[in-house]
Amino acid sequence: MPALLGAAIVLSVLTLLIMASGQSVGEGLQIILQGAIGYPRADAYGPADAWDAVLHDMTLLLLTGLAVAVALQAGLFNIGAAGQLLVGALAAAWAGTLTGVPDRLHLLLTLMVGAVAGALWAFVPVWLKVRRGAHEVISTIMFNYIALYLTHWLVTERLKDPMGDAPQTALVLEAARLPMLREDFLQASWGLGIAVVIALWLWLTLYHSVWGYELRLTGANRDAADAAGVSTARRMVEAMLLSGALAGLAGAIEVCGTQYRFFEGFPSEYGFDGIAVALLAGNHPALALFSAWLMSALRSGAYHLHAETGAPKEIAVVVQAVLILYVAAVYLRKRRLEG
């Protein structure tokens, strides 16, 4: 029942926004649907296929969504996925340009470097939480901005492509690139495969292993977990490192699969959108597959509406905000965070 009500609310908000932008509702919804699940017309311009954009966004949103979900399962709110994504992306862009790495290992190495960088970026906030009791939300927000300015400084001063003036790194080598999902795709790479495998692995680990049980117990009731002999501080640190690694990997995949370099203004907002993905999925890794797809479809649909009619594409942002509030108010009542 609440799910139906939620769908009804989202649909009414969408309708209202389309009406307010002066479009006919039926036509607007149809255009959004086209952008979300594929263009039926042969003469569609823009990306070859809506699936290109949807699957690309889904890859990043799934990983950042899983990042937020894993931390939340352990009772930690990682608002810092955006910063971890940036740091991971820049580290991967650096590793991807190294020469002397065997071709067969280069892609793996590049993705690992991105994940490790993201994990390291998440370490200080969780250390502050465990040792000093500092609220992780505050410290991860601070680390988002530190990451923003640090990567900006590095890409303009230290790691800039020496071949040009633009504030961007050199292109990563061919061996460090992910193949595209389909030949005519421009954005969606096999990074999606990696993300889906990780989601399934997380499902197994969180719900069918002792470690996962202890982690979730820590998040559900830290005092009870302590009393049961779980080393809760350890589980929290591990969850946060895993969370940072996933966000860093999202950045690395964006570099290896789509952009092939890091640049000034690298898209990091996926880190924040991961919060919506995780909440909508109730922090369940398998359900995150669905919510990541839904958010990506919504984004792509709103973008298509923008391209076709000029209606602001921020319709998607408003709907996302309403969705978060609804889910939080109905499903997440009285969830208390310590600190």
């Binding site: 709110f77 608002i79 939300v137 924040f272 919060i275 909440l279 905000a321 309403v322 978060i324 509030l325 939080a328 108010a329 997440l332 009542r333 009285k334 969830r335 208390r336 965070l337």
Partner: peptide, 10 residues
């Protein structure tokens, strides 16, 4: 009784 952080993000 929503979580304060979630509401702020929204």
């Amino acid at each position: 009784r929503t979580d304060h952080i979630v509401s702020g993000v929204a």
